[in-house]
Amino acid sequence: MAREKPKPTPGSRSKSGVKAKGAKELAHALLYLGPSLILFLIFVFYPMVKTVYLSFYLTNPSGDPVVWKGVQAYLSLLGSGAFRNSVLVSFLFVLYTVPGTILASLLLAVLANVKLRGIGVYRTLYSLTIGVSVASAATIWMLLFSPADSGMLNYWLHLVGLPKIGWLVTTRSALPSLALMTVWMGVGFNFIVLMGGLQSLPEEIFESARIDGAGRWKQFRHITVPLLSPTLFFLLVVDTIAAFQSFGQFNILTLGGPDHSTNVIVYSIYREAFFNSRFGPASAQAVVLFVIILVLTLVQFGVVERKVHYQ
């Protein structure tokens, strides 16, 4: 199929004129982008390149590359049961936290999206955890999770006559316990975003749905969720990346244990680099994590985004 070239409309500039304009626009764009580009170059792109570079070496404890190893770090990652475990644990952690956080926040946001006196108090309460840093949250939950009788959660279980739980001490319960704490922490941010999304939905649609006899569930299922889908999609992407990159709670509460049951990739990288001083293998893990998150985000945009309803 031969396509006809669009004819230049009369009065349009000459080719060289267009080029000059393009260069000028580029210069302008660079001018405005400059400061952030410099910061990105120094704090993101340079470390990224350096990470890839280091992953081909064995370093001394100060991080200077000493022995060229080629792709050996990657090969040993592939064969390493410990790394496969870290990947699995990371995915499980995402699975435990992301849907839970979004669902819990959605429920709270729908509940809080009514016009009542004093509803602001609830809205503030539900969004409070956004102001809590990971470090303080982890310290609070350390007291809650304490396996001793003085641990709050176990004390409450005892009060209602349930047996004690090992929380962070057994391999089976450690990751779910951390997920519980992470969901609690993530609800604040998710709630605020969803609340904003809900508030921007046009009231008329709900009104006409009510006139047509749609109940609360039908309204929620067929109007709220589709209209809110851009917000939900945004949270899905952001929460997934955040879950993959979680670090503080692991560092403070479990140190990756017991028996590596909470040794997510990020924590494993940290441990390998800053405790074992093996910057080469740690960099290789970082590169793999980057690829995993990249692929996953692309998949999310390719598959899930089709279901998103943009107004």
Binding site: P147, D149, S150, G257, P258
Partner: peptide
């Protein structure tokens, strides 16, 4: 004996609470 994990603060608390 019971396993109270890696934190020495947990065993210290348990000892103080006569657990």
């Amino acid at each position: 004996a019971t396993n109270l994990g890696r934190q020495t603060s947990a065993t210290q608390a348990a000892f103080g609470a006569q657990q």
